[in-house]
């Protein structure tokens, strides 16, 4: 509470805060377009804008290693995977009027209600909390690497096993069943691949 007296107010924002709010507006707008557009490929491309804006926000929070990991993994690989998935499942790319389901207004009500609740709680709780961004960066590659390989080695190694399991699972799931010819229809293939999916997600 003694810190609350000398924190700057909201009416005199610093340059970092102004930049953060502007990039945040771009990010939020891109996220809104991502969940509302009817062009599926445009949704994936606006997702690139949202994720790139989040990388800029990480840079503004002096977490530079996380920012570059975000650019590499999300913008580099996840969105490319999503685009591949879109083009493999939706052969005619274009405007699809059935992108939103019928419960759109219920979803909007739930989202607005939860946003109002969350923002009210968060603003009420952290109104006077101030992040000190001066000094050495809290998320430089040196600091992140030291903490990761001194304190988080065992989860890190466990994560590599999880990645291997995910890789094998994706290969098994997307492999074509050998004994069924493609003209036979979904009946012989459906229980087989479902059983494999259960095995891999366990």
């Amino acid at each position: 509470m003694s810190l609350a007296a000398d924190t700057p107010g909201f009416l005199s924002p610093t340059g970092v805060e102004i930049t953060f709010v502007l990039v945040g507006l771009v990010t939020f707008g891109a996220a809104l377009v991502t969940v509302t557009t009817r062009q599926l490929v445009h949704a994936a491309l606006w997702l690139v804008v949202a994720l790139g804006g989040l990388a800029v926000e990480y840079l503004l929070l002096t977490a530079e290693f996380i920012a570059w990991v975000q650019v590499l993994i999300y913008v580099g690989s996840v969105v490319v995977l999503l685009l591949f998935g879109l083009m493999l499942t939706r052969a005619p790319i274009g405007r699809s009027p059935d992108a939103d389901s019928g419960n759109r207004w219920a979803a909007l009500a739930v989202a607005v209600a939860s946003a109002g609740t969350l923002i009210w709680v968060v603003v009420d709780a952290f109104r006077t909390t101030w992040i000190d961004l001066d000094g050495p960066a809290a998320g430089s590659t040196k600091a992140t690497g030291q903490s990761l390989f001194q304190n988080w080695v065992l989860p890190f190694e466990g994560l590599s096993v999880l990645l291997l399991a995910a890789l094998v699972g994706a290969i098994v799931l997307s492999r074509k069943a050998k004994e069924t010819d493609p003209a036979a229809g979904p009946d012989p293939a459906a229980p087989h691949s479902g059983e494999q999916g259960e095995k891999e997600t366990r």
Partner: peptide
């Protein structure tokens, strides 16, 4: 920087994603 700025942006993004999960029809 006030902690409220990233917290509010995070809440907004989360609720945007929540709307998308509830309202979208395509699995991707």
């Amino acid at each position: 920087m006030h902690l409220a700025y990233p917290a509010v942006l995070s809440a907004l993004l989360f609720c945007t994603g929540l709307y998308g999960v509830l309202a979208r029809r395509n699995a991707i």
